[in-house]
Simulated scan of single mutants.
Amino acid sequence: MDGVGVTADGFGLRGPRGWAFRGVGLDAEPGSLIAVEGPSGSGRTSLLLALTGRMKATEGTAAVGGARLPKQLAAVRRVSALAHVAGVTDLDPALTVGEHLRERALLERRFGGPVRELLRPRAERAAEVGLRIDTALAAAGLDRESLPKGSRTAVRDLERLEALRLSVALALIGRPGLLGVDDIDLKLTDAEREEVWALLGSLAEAGTTVLAVCGEAPEGTVTVSTGPEAAPLDREDAVEAPAQENDIGASGEPAAESTDVPAAESARTTAKSTESDEPTGSTGSTEPTGSEQEEEKTDAIAETGRA
């Protein structure tokens, strides 16, 4: 599949603790390398998931190819894929590289292609699976023969960069128009980061639009910044924001609405609980203090209408 264009105008997502990101503007041509730049915790992953149709934005609009967000989430998911997203695309450490690749190819053939493909002769389908796997591995720069046990190498035995390349290869099996890669800085050396950027640049040059989350974007990328500098938060927004479907599960679909209380409210509740749990002395007396007596008098006056 050819790459898709990505645009956004005033794009934002508000969650139970305030704005995950807000006021995002973007205009990227098909085959662009887009960097979502910002510190950890600044809403980078949320923006990645929203632009790939895995989270529903609450403000503004965006477009991925011909699909509009936030309304056409399913259409965006059909043309996008994710790699290296914790909690979404986690690799099973007990499975081998070959098992991961075959499983993804079979799932893609079963659910990602037209039904008539299932009617093709088995030999043709097997050849198609092998071709897809080999093409994805070559694009991701992962050579199975260089691994300790080849395709039988368990994921737990892979180096960090090899695991990232495998995750990218799995995403590419579906031939997406938009590839989202999360946190490419995670525990990688400077030299390894340069390799990753070179990999993503080669994918973009080949036609796939790439959206990558990082701490600092290199030159030559279409950069979108997140964090307080990009979208200042109002204190009222952080305390009074309503619950929003902004969590995802392993399937990549939005999870149930969060029931977390805002941080400020949680702090107030903790403070009240601490005060009520303090010992009152050996006699168990709960005589109010002078300030408490004054507050009770004020409340009594208010109730009688003399305030």
Rank of each mutant, 00 (worst) to 15 (best):
P121N: 11
L172Y: 08
D157G: 09
A62I: 02
R77F: 06
T274H: 13
A86I: 04
L203M: 11
T223I: 06
G53D: 06
D92M: 11
I184R: 12
A241R: 02
L172T: 09
L158E: 05
S225L: 07
V155C: 12
A212I: 03
L33C: 04
G220L: 10
T223Y: 02
P228G: 03
T259N: 06
A62S: 05
D2R: 13
A136H: 12
G174F: 01
L91S: 08
P114C: 00
A74F: 06
E292M: 09
L179C: 12
G220R: 05
L131F: 09
E195V: 00
A123E: 15
D143A: 11
S282P: 06
D134A: 14
E99L: 08
P232F: 12
I184M: 01
E292W: 12
L49S: 12
R193C: 05
L119Q: 03
A241D: 08
E275F: 12
P176K: 00
S273P: 08
H84C: 01
S80C: 03
R306D: 15
I301A: 15
T289Q: 11
A255R: 04
S202P: 03
S32R: 02
L166V: 05
G12R: 00
P30F: 02
R110F: 10
V85T: 10
T223F: 08
T96I: 06
T280I: 02
M55K: 11
T89N: 06
R104L: 03
V36R: 02
R68N: 00
L13P: 00
P262C: 14
A86S: 14
E294R: 07
L107K: 09
D9A: 12
L200W: 07
T89F: 07
E195P: 00
R54N: 11
G53E: 00
A63Q: 15
K56F: 04
C214W: 00
E245T: 02
P148D: 07
A127G: 11
E108I: 00
A35T: 03
A302D: 02
L137D: 13
